[in-house]
């Protein structure tokens, strides 16, 4: 369990701001206790103070995971969010996309969202903005990046990609072993 260096913390926070913008401060400054980032084997964990102290009892070699895994550092030094971070992203996200129930499954299999699958989108979403994808009954399904802004979506043809897939909850099954 390592503390993140300043550079790495910056990378993580920059990535998070792409999705939740100014709400990133709410993740750091929480009323229910102190939360911090810890790194182990290139994975970044978001841990509360309580759990951290408990984890110190466990032999670090045997420890599989603590807190929430937010993502990992790639070999080239970039930070990549994992689907496990969705639980913390979804409530704070500023731009959302709702998909039709028919397109839900397509997305959960790892496909991009085309316009035909789009049900609703937050107004004034710019292009290449990080968004969280919700089902019609407001269950977060994953996250991605918009391929078109809200204005462009209106005029796009039905098969055009609206949102690029980055992670979805189907990964819990599909890539169970690589997630942690």
């Amino acid at each position: 369990m390592k503390r993140l260096t300043e550079e790495k913390t910056k990378l993580v926070l920059e990535k998070l701001t792409k999705y939740i913008g100014t709400n990133v401060k709410l993740l750091l400054d929480r009323p229910d206790g102190v939360y911090c980032f810890r790194e182990r084997k290139g994975r970044v964990y978001y841990v509360s103070e309580k759990i951290l102290s408990l984890a110190s009892m466990v032999n670090p070699d045997k420890l599989a995971s603590i807190g929430t895994c937010f993502g990992k550092f790639t070999k080239s030094g970039k930070f990549r969010l994992h689907i496990t971070a969705l639980y913390h992203l979804a409530p704070y996200v500023q731009h959302k996309i709702w998909v039709k129930s028919s397109a839900e499954q397509q997305f959960l299999y790892g496909h991009h969202i085309s316009k035909s699958g789009l049900s609703r989108i937050t107004e004034n979403t710019p292009q290449y903005q990080g968004v969280v994808i919700f089902s019609t009954n407001n269950i977060p399904l994953g996250f991605g990046v918009t391929a078109k802004s809200t204005m462009d979506c209106k005029y796009a043809d039905p098969m055009a990609t609206i949102c690029f897939h980055q992670a979805d909850i189907g990964e819990y099954i599909r890539s169970e072993d690589s997630l942690i």
Binding site: T9, T22, S149, Y155
Partner: peptide, 30 residues
């Protein structure tokens, strides 16, 4: 925690690339 919040403040202040301020104007003409 204090350090991290400072860092977040800096990122939000500096990085205009991440947060494009003017969302009202569409970037491309449809």
């Amino acid at each position: 925690k204090k350090r991290n919040t400072n860092l977040a403040d800096n990122i939000l202040k500096n990085n205009t690339k991440i947060l494009r301020e003017d969302f009202s104007v569409p970037k491309t003409k449809p």
